[in-house]
Simulated scan of single mutants.
Amino acid sequence: MNATTIRRWSFVHTWTSLICTLFLLLLALTGLPLIFHHELEHLLGDAPELRELPPGTPHLDLQQLVAAAERHRPGEVVQYLGWEDDEPNGVVTIMAATAGTEPNSSHTFMLDARNGEAVAMPAANGGFMMLMLRLHVDMFAGLPGKLLLAFMGVLFVVAIVSGVVLYAPFMRRLRFAEVRRDKAPRTRWLDLHNLIGIVTLSWALVVGVTGVISACADLVIAAWRNDTLAALTAPYRAAPPLTQRAPATDVLRIAAGAAPGMQPDFIAFPGTRFSSEHHYTVFLKGNTHLTAHLWTPVLIDAQSLAVTAVGTRPWYMDALALSQPLHFGDYGGRPMQILWALLDVLTIIVLGSGLYLWWSRRGPLPGTPHAAREVQR
């Protein structure tokens, strides 16, 4: 690689890094507590706690739970009911003024499936963990914030690739992982910056790419609605508005019959963005670590309770479903959480050291980055 090529790659690496660094620092700092969100919710007292009841207490049926939710928040409608693996007696309930209300304006709580008692979920409606999540997801700016973070993620990936390109010529006169401790502080930090960057390379690429995909979730869901869901509900386009719907009592049993061997993840009620005006949509998931994150939607006519379609998963919804837990290290239990946290801290060091190296550089050419000058020495 000649000097001109090195300077060009170095220019790309420096400026893509600089543009995204402050945003990446925000994401790395807010992402750290989100890796341990379950543990922190319990520590902060934000996790819902159900009352102790005799073992074997039967569950209410779904329509009874819907009625309990409506009594808890009169004047609102149920948008979603969902289930969590770590709380078999709880049903996560999301309600809002209308079925089509956007997610940030809804209210989330847990219903005790045994008696319909409502239990607060502070972490889902406010508090420290919600603050961290909103800063990490959209910086409280909605879709524009998500798209800005997606663009920063793309720049981050470009910075990683350009850093890899520069790494080989930079290390041609050094042993792998060598830190020149006898040199000036700036040179030592440059060596550490490159060492930690190459060690965290694979993880950073995974988190960067999955972060970009997750940031585009609203666009992915809109594409699914306009493509797959529209095709599944095409026979209902000319149907009159739904004035009365059948009770939700049996929708889980009906969905299980349409897709045997799967378990429910959540139900989208008529009028929500994961359903249609005329359907209950039951999203089922598999039983393995991989398939537990992949949804199969079963559409049930909200008036007749007939199954009208069992949806297939387009590739982009699979990509979204798999990227979100991978982004936060949710696949491998506590060991993976700890690994993700350590790599996150190392990434913060890489980002901070990159800012230091740029700020402390010397030379007459402000557009020529530190790496190019170091490589040519």
Rank of each mutant, 00 (worst) to 15 (best):
N2T: 05
T5P: 07
R8Y: 13
W9Q: 00
F11Q: 11
T16I: 05
L27M: 12
I35H: 10
F36L: 04
L44C: 09
D46E: 14
A47E: 10
A47R: 00
E49M: 09
R51H: 14
E52I: 11
P58Q: 12
P58L: 08
L65M: 13
A67T: 13
R71P: 00
P74T: 07
P74D: 14
E84V: 06
P88R: 12
P88D: 10
N89Q: 15
I94T: 11
A96V: 08
P103F: 11
S105E: 15
S106H: 02
G116K: 01
E117G: 06
A120H: 09
M139K: 04
K146P: 02
L148D: 04
F151D: 09
G153D: 08
F156P: 02
V165I: 07
L166Q: 06
P169Y: 09
P169R: 04
F170N: 09
M171Y: 10
R172V: 08
R181W: 14
K183Y: 04
D191K: 05
N194L: 10
V206Y: 04
T210F: 01
A215W: 00
A217N: 09
I221D: 01
L232R: 05
T243Y: 12
T243E: 14
Q244K: 15
Q244S: 15
A246F: 14
A246L: 09
P247Y: 15
L252V: 01
Q263S: 12
D265A: 14
D265T: 00
F266W: 06
S275P: 00
H278P: 03
Y280E: 02
V282R: 09
H289C: 10
L290R: 13
T291R: 02
H293Q: 15
P297I: 09
P297S: 06
A302D: 04
L305E: 09
V307D: 06
W315P: 01
L322C: 06
Q324A: 10
P325V: 06
Y331N: 13
Q337P: 03
L339V: 14
W340R: 12
D344G: 15
L351V: 09
S353K: 04
Y356I: 00
W358Y: 14
G367S: 15
E374H: 14
